[in-house]
Design a binder for these strands. Structure first.
Length: 269
DNA sequence: AGAGTCACCCGGACGC
DNA sequence: TGCGTCCGGGTGACTC
């Protein structure tokens, strides 16, 4: 599901493609996706300009000239498509935002949402999120401090958005594999070198995933060659039973607090 | 605080 | 092909 690298890829591409564009109209297929009556939602968005597209954790923030912000969370299986009235996908969009000729389609939002909020509401909504792992302020010292305050299982902590924002089921496993540390380890038992390795693996894996466009299946727009390039670069996620790319032993698929987890018992300690 | 459970929701996979 | 059923999975609320 979309995690930090996928949302960051979207942010970069959307910034290039539609920053400064004016919303001409909207269409809402699924009212639960939004937080206002569709008429009010449409009225507040119409003739509003997109001034900035920002990411926080797994959220995307579309800042508008009026000061309002469209807050997007794709949750499970949500994805975007930027096309035109003709160039669109053969499935329903829960919300459609028209930007003159161009059209931004919001697909697969069954649990995901697109909420129109004021800056105060945004601050309140995002306040509980943990630090951004790729923010320069997020140093090894900062990470070591977080680890000292946490006692549970490593993977469970890594996917906790209040602890660190943006890491989900896929990248928690990828980061642990890169660090050669089992995701099932308990945080208090991690040695100092392991903590440092984990920090560097987090930086490297997330940065590489962004460089390759994340693992989204659907390109953002017709000529988009970036999105989804990380698909075939996943080392362990969803590779249960397949040979480890480092040692050839089969990747183990297990369950950890009702969540899939993948690791190599030979390469990871 | 951590760990477990549940509800939310529906596209897609699977069985017949 | 087509219909019914089940599952997955991020998050927040709730419990022990």
């Amino acid at each position: 599901m979309p995690e930090l690298p996928e949302m960051e890829t979207y942010r970069r591409l959307l910034h290039e493609q539609i920053c400064g564009a004016v919303i001409t109209s909207t269409a809402v297929q699924r009212e639960k996706t939004i937080n206002l009556p569709p008429a009010q939602f449409g009225q507040l968005l119409q003739n509003n300009r997109l001034t900035l597209i920002e990411r926080r954790g797994k959220h995307l923030l579309f800042h508008l000239q009026s000061g309002h912000v469209l807050l997007l969370h794709l949750m499970l299986g949500g994805f975007l498509y930027l096309g035109t009235a003709e160039d669109k996908l053969a499935r329903t969009a829960q919300v459609t935002v028209f930007l003159g000729e161009r059209v931004l389609y919001f697909h697969g939002l069954r649990l995901g949402y697109l909420h129109l909020l004021t800056p105060d509401q945004i601050d309140e909504k995002l306040a509980p999120l943990g630090p951004e792992p790729l923010n320069p302020e997020f140093t090894l010292t900062h990470f070591e401090k977080l680890l000292e305050e946490k006692r549970g299982v490593l993977k469970t902590a890594m996917v906790d958005q209040h602890w660190i924002a943006g890491i989900g089921n896929c990248y928690s496993d990828e980061i642990c594999f890169h660090a050669r540390i089992l995701p099932t380890r308990r945080i208090p038992e991690l040695t100092a070198p392991e903590r440092a390795t984990l920090y560097h693996s987090m930086q490297e894996v997330l940065a590489e995933a962004i460089r390759f466009g994340g693992y989204m299946e659907q390109p953002l727009y017709r000529t988009d060659e970036l999105t989804g390039g990380f698909d075939e670069r996943c080392q362990v996620y969803d590779r249960g039973g397949e040979p480890c790319l480092r040692c050839g032993q089969p990747i183990v698929k297990d369950e950890l607090s009702s969540r899939k987890v993948f690791f190599c018992t030979h390469c990871q300690q």
